[in-house]
Design a binder for these strands. Structure first.
Length: 477
RNA sequence: CGGGGCAUAGCUCAGCUUGGUAGAGCGCUCGCUUUGGGAGCGAGAGGCCGUCGGUUCGAGUCCGGCUGCCCCGACCA
């Protein structure tokens, strides 16, 4: 029943929340999971926050096929090499061996770029701004619910532009969209930055990322936006006739965010009692627990509950009334474990006094509880939801900031990384040395953070040479 | 892909050493009593013991094959 404490075993704590809060369950298929209604509602709320932003920035949704001809994937050399170990391939269909195997998409650059090459003829066709919501398959050897599964849900945006500048602006804009969503809706204080060459998307010129710090100090890449240059345009011959009468290759971008975000929410906000959900994306924002002994009390209490929830409904507060047969104490623990931001208790005493008891999930102890008037309750609740949202972001931000440590020697680096913190260092791009660091410490290059760059140069923590960029290293999911 | 472990009720597991009619806790169903921080009592339902084969009068238990899952490592957008 109870959840394994985080301090005892973080992985177990995570799995306990996923399964006991009914977000997902294990499926019969290796490495796959069933997303249950409560988990899927959370994903739907994430989806709608993103989809709204995509539309606001001029993108349209479309849908491309699940199956991709093998030859498409092979057109971009680095891309195919990056994905080939984890592809699921269909070789037999309809009882016959296929002439050309079909790949179950690990991502859709190739099939979408193939379509783009037919659709784009003139500068008037640009920019082309598309997004698709889809499932993709990557045959991972080691899987964890939401963080890494063989099949997962995501969105992938694909755009084509006339100029490099425009494509790079798009790449940056969509990373901003992700960061805005993560910070303001998921209450996750992400760090924006550029990936090292070793960590970038196969086929990209460069990759930008939002990195989040989990409660165990590990980093989670929570969304990525890639500038693809003309790599795919050349591989798929996507050319347009420009105003100056010249045929030119387009510049493309792609960007994606997956159900992994659910894992990020769990591991950013959760505590030993279970999940803590930011009100903006919580499937249930307030749970009502009626309390009564006798039947007369029950109808009295329920009348008040009906009156109050009608007000919630009118203003769009997402509520749930738990009138099951469980004891109140059971319900309190259960809904805290499921991360509902506010609990409302209504008993005979409250009905009599025209009051209600509110308990907020983001605070521990007595301070979490308040006795408020039923008059103006909707406003009280709305204000509290806003306050909880802000408080979760603040708690996560303070945790993150206190766990990023500046180091300039390899020894300090090792102890910081071993302590589960992030190392902020001076660094020069070098894939071989990055690999060495990973082998020796298990920490990886997370990104070159845009907001933490400094003028001039500093001492590379590994080589001691002068370095011109600030990088973050840490253990990661 | 290398090393180790496991497969028995919805879940967690015992039973195997030493073969003899399938067990516990939790959960579930029904009834009564309860209800402001994980309630109590009583009754009940629920299993081709992963699968195929072998040994035996008799296999959850012993032997072999297969399949699946978990952990550690390696790999990894």
């Amino acid at each position: 029943m109870a959840i394994t404490p985080m301090s005892e075993n973080f992985s177990k704590w995570y799995n306990d929340i996923v399964y006991k809060a009914d977000l997902a369950s294990q499926s019969e298929v290796r490495g796959s999971m069933i997303i249950k209604p409560y988990g899927y509602e959370l994903w739907e709320n994430i989806k709608s926050g993103l989809d709204y932003r995509f539309k606001e920035t001029g993108h349209k949704n479309a849908y491309f096929p699940l199956f991709i001809p093998e030859s498409y994937l092979q057109k971009e050399a680095e891309h195919v090499e990056g994905f080939s170990p984890e592809l699921a391939v269909v070789t037999i269909a309809g009882g016959k061996e296929l002439e050309e195997p079909l790949i179950v998409r690990p991502t859709s650059e190739t099939i979408i770029m193939h379509a783009f090459s037919n659709w784009i003829q003139s500068y008037r066709d640009l920019p082309l701004l598309l997004n698709q919501w889809a499932n993709v398959v990557r045959w991972e050897l080691r899987t964890r619910p939401f963080l890494r599964t063989s099949e997962f849900l995501w969105q992938e945006g694909h755009t084509a532009h006339a100029t490099q500048t425009e494509a790079e602006e798009e790449t940056a804009q969509m990373l901003d969209v992700y960061a805005d969503f993560a910070i303001n809706e998921a209450a996750i204080p992400v760090i924006q930055g550029r990936k090292s060459v070793r960590e970038k998307f196969a086929g990209a010129v460069y990759t930008t990322t939002i990195e989040a710090m989990m409660r165990d100090g590990k980093a989670l890449q929570s969304g990525t936006s890639h500038y693809l240059g003309q790599n795919f345009a050349k591989a798929f011959d996507i050319r347009f006739l420009d105003k100056d009468q010249e045929r030119k290759y387009v510049y493309t971008t792609s960007w994606g965010l997956s159900t992994r975000m659910v894992g990020a929410v769990i591991m950013t906000h959760g505590d030993d009692k279970g999940l803590r959900l930011p009100p903006v994306i919580a499937p249930i924002q307030i749970v009502v627990v009626p309390i009564y002994r006798k039947e007369e009390q029950r109808s009295l209490v329920m009348d008040t509950v009906d009156k109050l929830t009608a007000q919630f409904k009118a203003v769009g507060i997402r509520f749930h009334v738990d009138d099951s047969d469980q004891s109140p104490g059971y319900k309190f623990n259960d809904w805290e474990m499921r991360g509902v931001p506010i609990r409302l208790e209504i008993g005979p005493k409250d009905v009599e006094k025209n009051q209600a008891v509110l308990v907020r999930r983001d605070i521990d102890g007595r301070d979490a509880k308040s006795f408020v008037s039923q008059d103006g309750l909707v406003e009280t609740v709305q204000n509290m939801l806003v306050d909880i949202q802000a408080n979760l972001l603040q708690q996560a931000t303070e945790f993150r900031d206190s766990n990023i440590v500046e180091v300039d020697t390899y020894n300090d680096f090792k102890s910081v990384v071993d302590a589960g913190q992030w190392a902020k260092v001076w660094w020069n791009e070098n894939s071989d040395l990055e690999k060495q660091v990973k082998n020796e410490t298990t920490a990886t290059h997370r990104c070159y953070p845009f907001d933490l760059q400094e003028e001039g140069t500093g001492k590379n923590f590994l080589t001691g040479e002068a370095a011109d960029q600030i990088a973050l290293f840490s253990k990661a999911y």
